[in-house]
Every structure is written in structure tokens, then in C-alpha cells.
Computed example of a mutant assay.
Amino acid sequence: MACQNCGASDTIKAHLIPEAFVMEVKVERGEQLLIVHEGQARPKVSNTGNYDPSLLCAACDGILGRWEGYAYTLFKRLRGVRAELGSFAAMGHVDGDQILRFAAGIAWKFTATQKHFGKIDIGPYSSLLKEVAFENAPIPSSVDVAVVRLVELDGDVYYYREPVPARHGGINSVRFSVGSFVIYLKTDKRPNDRTMPPECWLKGRSEGKFLIAPAEYFTEGKLHRELAMKDPVRRFFGDMRTRKQTRTQNK
């Protein structure tokens, strides 16, 4: 298969969600991931998350890797920011456009991947996001990005959510979560949703804010709790705990 960006014939195993974010879900080495797709009867057990071997060549994957590396470092720093739940915390210095290009690249991969990997349809915005992510194209007013940090009782979340088309405050968007953060990528010609202050929308900003919110109030947190209570997810977590106890006893 040819690279779906440049057409090169030599594609690689390109991770859909960057492997660095996937590995953050693990508490310790030796754990595995359970990937659950809506409507899929059997979840997939994985060590590093989903990858598509027919999506990108190494060079094009590297272009997205630049934005992904910036987002990973930024989110790691922002998890150290202390603020009250429900408040808007200052990011300090931030390159808002790099965060937007990161989000555009993740969303585009899921428009270009295969159906069994969670392919989404966002119409003409797929090609627009491709230009923004790969070609460093000017960012139109119809695209912007905002982030929300989800907090569990112990401060972190142990899951991620792949991109899905969504509506936020009546505005079309692509929504996904990594590293304890929910990312809203606006894909709509209408003005930005006013649910969050203007400084939470990061396009063109060198400073910004993000909302700190309880995970249980968000779809991501609710889905995680619901799935964790049902088989086969509950059984998977039980088996994982048993393996952990065995490893501890054998040390």
C-alpha cells in the first residue's frame, strides 16, 4: 500500500494514537491494554495500541511526530499544574498552533485509516486537516482547538479515547483524549463555542488556559467506569491483577 499523504510505496506500522501516550496508560511494565470499540464483540489485547501498516511512510509519520512530541511534553508539564476542579488554569508559554496541528494530525489519521481501526467521516475537513498537519498550511478560522484536563480521585486517568465526530456547544468538532486531556478540535465555520473562555481556544496563542474537571462528568470517564464493570473488561482487569500479584511473589 502507498502512503496516504505522499504516495511513497514503503509504509510503516504507524501508530494511530502516538505510542508515547498509549504507554502512559500503563501503571507498570508487563501490563497490557484492552482496546474496546463500540459494536465490537471481542476487545483487542495490545501492548502498544493500534497501528495501521498501510497508512504512512516513515517520513510522513515523522512530520506528525514533531507535533505529537510537542503535545506529549506540554501535557506532561500541565499535569503538574495545581488548581481547583472546575477552574481554568494558566498554561504559561504555549504554542497554540502546534497543539492544533497535533490534533489535526491525529484526527486526519482516523479519517484515512481502515474501518476496523475506527475510521471516522468528517467530510471535506479531512483534506483540510491533512494540509494543516502535513504542509504547515495556514490555519483557517473554521478550525481551532481547546483542551480539558480530566482528574480522577488519585489525580490521573488510565485510558485514552480515539477520535469521534462530536458537537460541543452546538459546534461540530472532533473529540479525543490522551494523557488525561480531552481535546476538542473545532471543524465548523461558525464562531467558537462560548462554553469555555476565548483564551481556552488556542489557535494563534502563545499563552492560554485549560479547564480542570472531574472525569466522572465527561463521556470518557463515564464510559471507562461503565466498561470496567462489565465482562470482558472486568475479567481482563482481574486477570491483570492476578498476573501482577504473581510477578510480585516471584521477585
Results as ranks from 00 to 15, higher is better:
94 V>F: 09
56 L>P: 06
249 Q>N: 02
51 Y>H: 03
2 A>G: 11
101 R>D: 02
118 G>E: 06
93 H>I: 09
194 R>C: 04
86 G>N: 05
75 F>V: 02
212 I>M: 07
250 N>G: 01
42 R>H: 06
26 K>H: 07
67 W>E: 00
38 E>P: 11
59 A>E: 08
138 P>Q: 05
24 E>Q: 14
66 R>I: 09
105 G>W: 01
62 G>C: 03
27 V>H: 15
213 A>R: 10
188 D>R: 03
212 I>N: 05
127 S>I: 00
199 E>V: 12
41 A>R: 15
158 Y>N: 03
216 E>V: 08
130 K>H: 03
211 L>F: 15
118 G>H: 05
241 R>L: 14
44 K>S: 06
86 G>I: 12
86 G>Q: 06
29 R>V: 15
151 V>F: 05
67 W>C: 00
19 E>R: 15
233 V>H: 02
171 I>E: 06
133 A>N: 03
26 K>N: 08
121 D>H: 11
198 P>C: 08
75 F>R: 00
55 L>Q: 10
120 I>C: 00
155 G>Q: 11
138 P>K: 07
22 V>T: 15
145 V>Y: 08
163 P>I: 01
82 R>C: 09
44 K>D: 05
75 F>A: 01
230 K>D: 03
8 A>Y: 13
61 D>I: 05
135 E>R: 04
153 L>P: 01
127 S>L: 06
146 A>W: 07
141 S>E: 06
169 G>K: 05
94 V>I: 14
182 V>S: 04
102 F>N: 04
55 L>W: 13
117 F>E: 12
109 K>P: 11
113 T>Q: 05
59 A>P: 00
131 E>P: 02
211 L>R: 12
164 V>A: 15
200 C>A: 14
169 G>V: 11
80 G>Y: 00
247 R>C: 01
86 G>L: 13
227 L>F: 14
9 S>Y: 04
103 A>R: 10
155 G>M: 09
2 A>T: 14
165 P>C: 06
164 V>P: 07
58 A>L: 11
196 M>Y: 15
60 C>N: 08
234 R>T: 05
5 N>R: 10
214 P>C: 06
102 F>T: 00
60 C>A: 10
83 A>S: 12
7 G>F: 06
